[in-house]
């Protein structure tokens, strides 16, 4: 049985699909209440790492534990009562309403024989409110815009009452206002309810603004781990993304702010002038 502690510990974790290692000797500890962003180029292993953390994939080598208990020993249902995942995208071939989708977040709590309880309905109503989509609850999921769908998926994960929330690029494909809304919900969850957050992030500037700790991955290994200021340096980004950038300061929050430099312009001359 899991306690309320949900610290995630990965020791020497390696994983491969059919061809070649995707993750290599990952050592990562995430304590209760942390808010961690995973960054790195496409294919560096961010999504795989999240899937390992929630136990739907098992490591080839190494050990992953949740609250001190090895994930291998925890039944899926137990894990799902503590860990929720917001995937990048899913589609539903049938016309489910938003309320019906969010209620599915209660799956790990619902008994096959007696069905859902009053508490399940209360928790999914609460999740709709937290995600700010009460007004959408009777709409069909498939009729919604990408930004609205992402909030529904987030609400479904919140209905799971997670102590650890894993998000896979929650803001990709969203417009600026939806990006901010989603991240603000996640942040307030972290700050007010102490939910541990691990999110794969594409947008380095958003990652810098919203996360306390960033983990930079390159080809399946962790190359930097620390505060945004420590991780988001010109040299580390040059090394990992093979892109020339200038790191400045966010004008308001003074978080690191990354400006991409175009490749065509000879970089040295440009900087010199």
């Amino acid at each position: 049985m899991l306690s309320n502690s949900n610290s995630l510990l990965m020791q020497k974790v390696s994983f491969s699909y059919f061809n070649g290692l995707v993750l290599r000797d990952i050592d990562l500890t995430v304590a209760d209440g942390e808010m961690v962003g995973l960054i790195g180029p496409n294919g560096c292993g961010k999504t795989t790492l999240l899937k390992l953390a929630c136990g739907v994939l098992s490591p080839v080598r190494g050990e992953i534990s949740l609250g001190g208990i090895s994930l291998k020993k925890l039944p899926r249902k137990q894990v799902a009562r503590h860990v929720a995942v917001v995937p990048q995208y899913f589609n539903i071939p049938f016309a489910f309403t938003v309320a019906e989708v969010v209620l599915l977040g209660r799956t790990p709590f619902v008994s096959a024989i007696s069905g859902e309880t009053r508490r399940d309905h209360e928790m999914s109503a609460l999740a709709l409110g937290l995600a700010g989509i009460n007004h959408l609850k009777n709409r069909y999921f498939n009729d919604l815009s990408g930004g609205e769908r992402q909030k529904v998926i987030l609400a479904m994960a919140l209905a799971q009452e997670p102590r650890l929330l894993l998000l896979d690029e929650p803001t990709t494909h969203l417009d600026i206002s939806h990006q901010l809304e989603v991240l603000e919900v996640v942040k307030s969850l972290n700050r007010q309810q102490g939910v541990t957050i691990i999110a794969a992030m594409h947008d380095l500037n958003l990652a810098s603004l919203f996360f306390d700790r960033l983990v930079l991955l390159k080809e399946g290994t962790i190359v930097a781990d620390g505060s945004p200021r420590e991780v988001l340096t010109e040299s580390s980004i040059q090394d990992v993304f093979s892109a020339s950038v200038k790191v400045s300061q966010h004008p308001v929050t003074s978080a690191p702010h990354i400006v991409v430099l175009p490749r065509e312009v000879p970089t040295n001359n440009h900087l010199a002038s």
Binding site: V56, A80, V85, F94, E100, T107, A112, Q160
Partner: peptide, 21 residues
């Protein structure tokens, strides 16, 4: 299986995230 079939409608991967074997 009816409640779990609703979860399966979201895809096998999502069903696994929701704690289904």
């Amino acid at each position: 299986f009816s409640f779990h079939l609703n979860a399966f409608s979201l895809g096998e991967e999502q069903a696994a995230y929701l704690g289904i074997n």
